[in-house]
Amino acid sequence: MGLTAIDLGLRGATSGVFLLIILVTLQRRATNQYALLGMAMSAGGIFYAITSAPFFPKSSWWWTMPLLSSLPAIVWLWARVAFDDDFVLRRWHGAVCGGIVAFGFTISLAWTRWPAFSKAGGKVLSLVAVVLALAAAVQTVKTWRVDLVERRRRLRLAIFAINIMFIALVAGASLAEHPVAIPGGSDSLPAAIGLFVAAMLAGVGVFGTQAAVAVNDATAAIASGDTSRQTGVTDRAITEGITVDPLLLRRLDHLMKVERIYRQEGLAIGMLAARLDVPEYRLRQAINEGLGYRNFNAFLNRYRIDDARVALSDMAQREVPVLTIAMDAGFQSIGPFNRAFKAETGMTPSEFRREALTSQAPPEIGQPRREIG
Results as ranks from 00 to 15, higher is better:
259 E>M: 04
139 Q>S: 09
107 I>N: 04
261 I>W: 04
28 R>F: 13
215 V>Q: 06
173 A>P: 06
206 V>C: 12
27 Q>R: 15
329 A>V: 04
125 L>K: 08
141 V>L: 11
139 Q>L: 12
40 A>R: 05
197 V>Y: 07
194 G>V: 02
175 L>Y: 06
26 L>S: 09
231 T>S: 00
152 R>W: 12
243 T>M: 07
304 R>K: 04
261 I>R: 02
87 F>G: 02
298 A>P: 05
145 R>E: 14
32 N>R: 11
205 G>W: 08
175 L>F: 06
319 E>F: 14
240 E>F: 11
250 R>L: 08
215 V>G: 03
261 I>C: 01
363 P>R: 12
96 V>C: 05
136 A>F: 04
59 S>T: 10
19 L>W: 13
208 G>V: 08
248 L>S: 03
223 A>K: 04
288 N>Q: 11
146 V>H: 09
110 A>T: 13
109 L>K: 05
156 R>Y: 11
210 Q>E: 15
139 Q>A: 13
82 A>E: 07
50 I>L: 14
141 V>R: 09
53 A>P: 03
38 G>H: 02
78 W>M: 13
254 H>F: 13
222 I>E: 02
244 V>M: 01
341 F>C: 07
74 I>K: 07
175 L>M: 11
155 L>M: 10
279 P>C: 02
46 I>V: 11
208 G>H: 12
119 K>A: 13
240 E>G: 05
165 M>R: 03
60 S>V: 04
231 T>R: 02
179 P>L: 05
261 I>L: 06
21 I>S: 07
317 Q>V: 05
38 G>E: 01
80 R>E: 14
186 S>G: 12
314 D>H: 13
210 Q>T: 13
82 A>Q: 05
97 C>F: 14
308 A>H: 01
46 I>G: 03
329 A>M: 06
277 D>H: 04
91 R>D: 00
43 A>E: 03
217 D>H: 06
40 A>D: 06
256 M>F: 03
56 F>S: 04
303 Y>A: 02
90 R>H: 02
100 I>N: 02
66 P>M: 11
154 R>P: 01
197 V>A: 11
13 A>I: 04
111 W>V: 10
33 Q>A: 12
22 I>A: 06
327 M>N: 05
174 S>F: 01
120 A>M: 15
19 L>D: 08
218 A>M: 07
104 G>M: 04
181 A>W: 04
142 K>P: 13
102 A>K: 01
149 V>Y: 06
352 F>G: 03
18 F>E: 09
120 A>P: 06
129 A>L: 05
359 S>M: 07
70 S>I: 15
253 D>A: 10
350 S>D: 15
362 P>W: 02
238 I>G: 00
343 A>E: 13
319 E>G: 08
239 T>N: 07
341 F>Y: 08
21 I>H: 11
11 R>P: 13
183 P>R: 00
200 M>E: 11
97 C>L: 13
322 V>N: 10
64 T>P: 01
213 V>Q: 14
48 Y>C: 02
58 K>I: 14
81 V>G: 00
305 I>M: 02
176 A>V: 11
153 R>G: 07
198 A>Y: 06
149 V>T: 12
166 F>M: 03
86 D>R: 09
110 A>P: 06
133 A>W: 05
373 G>Y: 12
77 L>N: 08
